[in-house]
């Protein structure tokens, strides 16, 4: 073998081993926040989800897809991450549509109270790092971050390599949850009653939030997907209710539904004293009320098939069984 060829092969082999080790190290070292909740999304059989919830921890804590299936036969997933703002949600939506052809998207709009593209780098990592490698991920990185910080999202080892001393079992063995993207909690923080304001009390939307909200709605329209806007109860963020009320105008403009359960929490018998995990998030008790209402509303207003008894969806029944044995609330 001539020496040139030998060297090329050697260099290529070296690079290949490097890439393997590098991606292994990247996976092991990275922060696994919410990975157990988000990554099972990629295990869902292609084009089987009918409804996908996109948004932040608000929707993650207040919507339980397993209950939606059990009670209404709705096959859904909460594809969300903590403190995810609307610009981030736009890419989360695009990512979801690479794998699924849902009939309906429910958008959590709690992020409208922020003017920025992301909240903090830590939270942005939770979203970006749990995304699969795809053009969407790089579009998101390009759009959401400034040039100085893109590197740490493309190679997240830049941020997380210092975790070498805090590695635990979870970092080596991926643990997957079967909650279909929701975070189930039975903790309770008694909160004071929600603030009451009129729907006329509203503040104009931030341009960034509005822009991406419109982009999401239009993307769904283009693909013939129903869109519904949604805001979960969160007592801590009531100061910003006027800003959320501005979403009504957008919903009207596109003739779509917007349900703000901060305005309508009485309708579902939501009790701030017992139904909050913390002032931002529902616990299981609250989530059951929210989920029941959403299921009812979706069933009544959209034509979403009942998948119970469908052979193609029998895996949902076994998953539900496992879910029931793991979670009690």
């Amino acid at each position: 073998m001539n020496i040139k060829l030998q060297r090329i092969i050697k260099a290529a082999a070296f690079m290949l081993i490097f890439c393997l080790l590098f991606s292994g190290a990247t996976y092991i070292l990275r922060n696994k926040n919410e990975a157990n909740i988000v990554l099972p999304f990629y295990d869902e059989p292609k084009n089987t989800l009918d409804v996908i919830f996109i948004g932040s921890s608000h929707v993650m804590c207040s919507v339980y897809p397993m209950e939606l299936y059990d009670r209404y036969g709705i096959a859904s997933y909460v594809f969300a991450s903590s403190a995810q703002l609307l610009p981030q949600s736009y890419y989360q939506l695009k990512e979801a549509l690479r794998y699924q052809t849902p009939k309906m998207i429910v958008l959590d709009v709690s992020g409208v109270i922020y003017d920025t593209k992301i909240s903090t780098a830590e939270y942005a990592h939770v979203q970006i790092d749990n995304m699969s490698f795809s053009p969407v991920k790089y579009q998101a990185i390009w759009d959401l971050f400034d040039s100085g910080s893109r590197t740490e999202y493309i190679f997240n080892i830049v941020r997380f390599h210092s975790r070498w001393k805090e590695l635990g079992k979870n970092d080596f063995l991926p643990i997957k949850s079967i909650t279909k993207g929701s975070y189930v909690s039975t903790d309770c923080t008694p909160c004071s009653p929600n603030r009451e304001i009129s729907t006329d009390d509203k503040t104009a939307m931030y341009p960034t939030a509005e822009k991406y909200l419109r982009m999401m709605i239009e993307l769904c329209r283009e693909k013939g997907i129903e869109v519904m806007l949604f805001n979960a109860p969160a007592v801590e963020e009531h100061e910003s209710l006027p800003r959320c009320n501005a979403v009504n105008d957008i919903a009207q403009e596109y003739s779509i539904n917007y349900i703000d359960l901060n305005m309508r929490y009485r309708e579902i018998n939501f009790d701030p004293a017992t139904d909050y995990r913390d002032p931002w998030h529902c616990n299981a008790k609250g989530a059951l009320k929210v989920t029941a209402f959403l299921g009812y509303f979706i069933k009544a207003n959209y034509s979403i098939p009942d998948r119970r008894g469908d052979d193609k969806y029998s895996f949902w029944d076994s998953q539900l069984k496992e879910y029931r044995s793991q979670y009690e609330y």
Binding site: F14, I17, I157, V158, H161
Partner: peptide
């Protein structure tokens, strides 16, 4: 030989003091 190179390379990547963590 390669083991030495990879150990050196990855000790820089993992144990190096760089990035937003530092």
């Amino acid at each position: 030989r390669w083991a030495v190179y990879f150990i050196l390379l990855f000790s820089v990547i993992i144990f190096g003091v760089y990035g937003p963590g530092y």
